[in-house]
């Protein structure tokens, strides 16, 4: 089943076209990475798909629900882990998780159970009563992703989830993301090529708002006749899709 389908999706900011007639299909259970240089349109695409930005033209269907006509239904299906760590800094880890449960309409018992389950899954027992602002960057990001998952979304948007993390924290997060594969559809944006290569089922590369390449990491390497995926990405992104 198709989890996400965009139909000529376009978004402009004044004179700048951030997303230009995007047509894309992502299958249910797929981990799809959206790559591109800064300003390529990755984050804007996620904002449009998560009903944060109003599109100028086109539409997108999230499990069959239109982002234009059924925004509230779409929001019930998705969760977003934004680029920056999205936590309430003055609340403890447990309070942050319970807060998101409440926001999603869970009753007290369900909130308590889901919070405990998430604390166990994300190995946060020792820090559960610590204020979020006092956690290290890696733990804050882990909490941020845990908050995005607590409502068990059908589709998860991870916008540069490992940005600024040290190599160990990044690898730990990779482990968490790998465990989520097949359980839900994941759309990931990242600037780390090895991350996209290691985690993704398929990769889309954007340049100047357009989707200029689509395929598995191996397919894109083969298409560009590159030595590795990083070179393939550079080749595609710098040529703006001539290799598509």
């Amino acid at each position: 089943m198709i989890a996400i389908k965009t139909i000529d999706l376009s978004k402009s900011y004044k004179d700048i076209c951030a997303v230009d007639s995007l047509n894309l299909e992502i299958q249910e259970g797929e981990l799809f990475s959206l790559l591109g240089v800064n300003g390529a349109g990755k984050t804007t695409t996620i904002k449009c798909l998560s009903c944060l930005s109003k599109v100028n033209s086109g539409d997108a269907l999230i499990l069959g629900k239109s982002i234009l006509k059924n925004a509230m239904d779409v929001k019930e299906l998705i969760s977003v882990s934004p680029q920056e760590t999205a936590i309430a800094p003055n609340l403890s880890v447990r309070e942050n998780l319970e807060f998101i449960c409440g926001v999603n309409g869970f009753d007290k018992n369900k909130a308590r159970n889901y919070t405990q389950k998430t604390i166990d899954t994300f190995d946060m027992k020792e820090i559960k009563n610590k204020q979020a602002k006092k956690l290290s960057g890696g733990w804050q990001r882990r909490l941020s992703i845990a908050m995005a998952l607590i409502n068990e979304p059908k589709i998860l948007f991870l916008d540069e989830p490992t940005l600024g993390l040290d190599v160990i924290a990044r690898r730990e997060l990779w482990g968490i993301i790998k465990n989520l594969k097949k359980k839900m559809t994941i759309v990931l944006t990242t600037h780390y090529m090895e991350e996209a290569e290691a985690l993704s089922d398929r990769i889309g590369i954007m340049s100047k708002g357009k989707l200029v390449a689509l395929g598995t990491a191996k397919e894109l390497i083969a298409k560009t006749k590159s030595k590795n995926f990083e070179n393939a990405f550079i080749s595609i992104a710098s040529e703006g899709g001539k290799t598509k």
């Binding site: 998560s50 009903c51 944060l52 509230m72 929001k75 019930e76 998705i78 969760s79 977003v80 882990s81 934004p82 680029q83 920056e84 760590t85 999205a86 936590i87 309430a88 998101i100 926001v103 999603n104 309409g105 941020s144 908050m147 995005a148 409502n151």
Partner: peptide, 11 residues
Amino acid sequence: SSLFMRLFTSP
């Protein structure tokens, strides 16, 4: 804040 971005994508 990014927290608000998260909340704006919730129902």
